[in-house]
Design a protein around this nucleic acid. Structure first.
Lengths: 139, 139
DNA sequence: TCATATAGTTTGATAATCAAACTAGTTAGT
DNA sequence: ACTAACTAGTTTGATTATCAAACTATATGA
């Protein structure tokens, strides 16, 4: 007999795996890489941030990020803006077009979320949101 | 004011992002790739399966998977076993050593899950498990 | 001031990945 | 039963992603 924690752990893993596959499929269809959309998602969710911070959040080195941001800049999705007080640092910021991409992607996520909770009533959605919020805060 | 679905959607995305970063860090520390551990996780969770099915679950082409399974085989983590009825097909199966790696990784996940739900009582863990189970089934 | 640390870039090498061609085996329609 | 169409997996050739380490410019602390 498995413990409650083990069951929840496997539910988390299953969710993560399925969401990974979904996300991978979405981005491949658009011909972009998972890392690229991940960067856009982070910038969309947290706002403009320095290279270093973005690299850590996305899970790549700053060297790799330099190339990625070069490409994103060429594609007019982000721009490099000077950091106010530290002249070594550079903020990466979504352009209008980049924000649009983020919002489109976010809309796809929302559609999926609604689909996944189609059998839920309002209270259940709120409850799950509350529990997941507590999980996220403990991260 | 955001709708309940939007809030839940963003909770899901935040959870996914954080778990991605966590997983990436774990595997980088071990010097293995995200795709490799993903394959091991899928095999550990679902059991032996044909190349094609594994490729789809992991989100890569069968060509890429051939190389990956070659490497995993060299590392004695998986083995190719004949498919019972279809001689074109090959099952990829975790070896004893591969199963051990899976279990070690799973233990890390469990530790994280327990940490994330440290503030939960037993009923809340069960409830979250039940809700996530319904979400996973709707995928 | 100067040594040390940090942010970002560049470089050179390696690993991951894909699409397309290929081989071997299966299935369906006649 | 034959053959055409399909499917599973591998190989090949090219491209892309990635890293570690060296490098430049700026910041910080003793």
């Amino acid at each position: 007999m498995k413990s409650d924690s083990e069951n929840l752990n496997h539910a988390f893993i299953e969710f993560y795996e399925k969401l990974s596959s979904w996300e991978l499929k979405i981005v491949k269809d658009k011909g972009i890489s998972l890392t690229l959309i991940h960067a856009v998602e982070v910038l969309g969710a947290f706002g403009a941030m320095p290279m270093k911070e973005l690299a850590i959040k996305v899970g790549i080195t700053t060297g790799t990020l330099t190339v990625l941001v070069d490409n994103l800049t060429k594609a007019k999705l982000v721009e490099r803006v000077p950091h106010g007080t530290d002249r070594r640092s550079i903020l990466v910021k979504l352009t209008e077009q980049g924000t649009k991409l983020f919002q489109e992607h976010d809309a796809l996520h929302l559609k999926l979320t609604k689909q996944l909770t189609a059998g839920f009533n309002e209270e259940e959605v709120q409850l799950l949101n509350k529990l997941m919020g507590r999980v996220n805060n403990a991260f």
